[in-house]
Nucleic acid binder design. Structure first.
Lengths: 201, 201
DNA sequence: CACGTTATGGACCGAATCGTCCACAATGGT
DNA sequence: ACCATTGTGGACGATTCGGTCCATAACGTG
C-alpha cells in the first residue's frame, strides 16, 4: 500500500496508471480491481491512510503531557520548516497535491482535505490553549483563530517549498511566526529555546 | 489563450488533453502544434502568462505611492482571504496547482514558481519597508523575513481554501496575521481600518 | 492575376489508458 | 481426498492519448 501511495504521491492521480501500480506492486490488474473497486477508490483509500498518518504524527508532536505546550508548538513549526527545507526533491505533501489536483472536481477528496485540516487545527488549538493555561501565550487571544493562523503558515511553507524556495526562507517564516505569537505580557521576548540560531544570520 | 489557461487550470496538466484544447479553442491540432511546440511548451507559456499576471496584480495592489503602505498590506491580505473564501468552486491558483503537480519532475515549472514567489516576496518587502519608514511597522524588524512570513500565510490560505475550509477560517488567519504584525511601539493596536468586522462574529 | 510562402485542420498512427474477462491456483470445510 | 469458494494475473478490448502528416486554404508580393 505504501508503494501505491508513493506512486500517486510522486506522479499525481492522472499521472499514475493502473498498469504502473500493477507493475510496482507485483499484483495483477484483476487482483487490483478485485481488491479495490478501481483507480479512484484506491486513491481515496491511499489518501485516507495518509491523512490519518499526518494527523497522528501531529498529535504525537503536539498533544503531549500538559506541560511545555508552547515549546512543543515552536518545535512543531520549526520541524515543519526544517522538513520541508530538507525535501530537496520537492516531494511535498500528498494531501496538498491531492487537494490541488482533485478537490475542485472530486467532492470526496475535498471533504477528506477539509476534515484533515480541521483535525490539525483542533490539535493546534488544544496545544495553544494549554500554552495559555501555562502562562506562555496571551490568555486573552482567541486560541482557535491563532491555530488557524499557524496552520496557514504551515501549509504556506509547504506550498512555497514545493515551489523550490530555499530553506532560509522557510526558517524566516517559521521564526517570524514564533516571534510574533502573542506571549503573555510579563513574559514577552524570543520564542523559547532556539536550537539553531546561527544559520539564519 | 485564456481558454487554454482555463482548461489547464481546471483539469491540471495530465488531466487536459490536446484534443480537448483543440476543441475548446476551435483550432486544429496541426495549428496547435505549429504555433506552439507541444503540450508542455503550451503549458509553460500559459503558466508564464499567469505568473506575470499574478505578479502584476500584486504590484498594483502593493506598490502604490509611498503613502499608506501598511493599509495597503492589510488590504492585500484581507483581499486574498476574501477572494479565496468566495471561490466556492475551489478553482484556486494555477501556480499552486502547477507547482503541486509538476515541480517535482519539471525543473522549468519549479523555476517559474520559485521566481514568482520571489517576485511576490520582493513586492511585500518593499511595501513593508515603506510601512516601516512611515512609522507603522517596527523599523527594527527584518522586512524580508516579515515578507516571507506574510507570503507563507497567503499561500497557506490558498492551500487551505482548496481544501474547502470556509471563509471564516481564512478571515481568522488574515485578521490574526494583521493583528500580530509588529507595530511601532507607540502605535500598537488593531490593524488599521477594518472594513467588514461584522461577519466574523 | 500568378505564384511562392505560410497557416490551417482533420485524418491518421502507435502507444498508452482504464477496465473486463476468464482460465487457473490457492484455500478451507467436510 | 474432494469440492466449492475465493483470489490471482495477464490477455484482451474499446477508447483516448500526444504527436505527425499532408492536402488545402489564406496571404503577401510581383
Amino acid at each position: 500500500m505504501a508503494t501505491v501511495a508513493g506512486l500517486f504521491w510522486s506522479r499525481g492521480y492522472a499521472g499514475t496508471s493502473m498498469d504502473a501500480i500493477a507493475t510496482a506492486t507485483g499484483l495483477g490488474k484483476g487482483s487490483l480491481y478485485g481488491a479495490f473497486g478501481g483507480k479512484r477508490d484506491l486513491y481515496l483509500r491511499v489518501l485516507g491512510g495518509y491523512c490519518a498518518e499526518v494527523t497522528d504524527a501531529a498529535s504525537v508532536g503536539l498533544a503531549g503531557p500538559d506541560d511545555g505546550a508552547f515549546a512543543r508548538l515552536c518545535a512543531h513549526i520549526r520541524s515543519a520548516a526544517q522538513g520541508i527545507g530538507a525535501d530537496h526533491a520537492h516531494h511535498g505533501c500528498l494531501l496538498a497535491k491531492a487537494a490541488a489536483e482533485l478537490s475542485e472536481h472530486d467532492h470526496d477528496v475535498a471533504e477528506q482535505a477539509r476534515r484533515t485540516f480541521e483535525g490539525l487545527a483542533d490539535l493546534l488549538t488544544a496545544d495553544i490553549e494549554a500554552a495559555q493555561r501555562e502562562g506562555e501565550l496571551d490568555a486573552t487571544a482567541d486560541a482557535g483563530a491563532l491555530a488557524r493562523f499557524v496552520l496557514s503558515v504551515l501549509r504556506g511553507m509547504e506550498a512555497l517549498g514545493k515551489g523550490g524556495v530555499d530553506a532560509e526562507w522557510l526558517d524566516d517564516a517559521a521564526e517570524t511566526t514564533i516571534r510574533l505569537l502573542p506571549r503573555t505580557a510579563h513574559d514577552a521576548g524570543t520564542g523559547s529555546t532556539r536550537s539553531g540560531e546561527a544559520e539564519t544570520g
